[in-house]
Amino acid sequence: MIDLWQAIYDTPFATTIRESEVVFPVIESVHVLSLALMAGTIAVVDLRVLGVVLRHTPAVRVERQITPLTWLGFAVMAASGALLFIAEAADLKHNPAFLTKVALLILAGVNMAIFQWHSRPRLAGLGAASRAPLAARLGAAASLALWACVIVAGRAIAYFHPH
């Protein structure tokens, strides 16, 4: 039975990244700094739904305009995250922070899917002055909490590095 995590870790590609002088730091920096592009933009949309910012523009319009930027951020985070995962695979297999982060990402994704399917249609007809329905606001609050925890779990990965 092959240990897939170890197999990935042992590849020349993974080893090169892991032992690199510049590449790994750059990938990691891109991953961290893209947080603003992905989580930051999500936060602004969530804050709009909660009525904290951009109240002169309908929530659905704010969401529609910002979402492409969020997807760009997600693409960058996914790509850089995949490279970091490949480089450290075997060390991550038993890393509680990493496993928690993956679980939280899945939850955040589910939360976003619920928003798209349930809340977005209900926001479509509302003007700027209207208060978003309770379900939408709860989803926005959950989104803020989940992404905050993703960031915490991500930073904690280094704290459980085996040696």
Partner: peptide
């Protein structure tokens, strides 16, 4: 940092 960056960008 994530929040500040998002606000700056938008």
């Amino acid at each position: 940092l994530a929040l500040f960056g998002g606000v700056l960008l938008i």
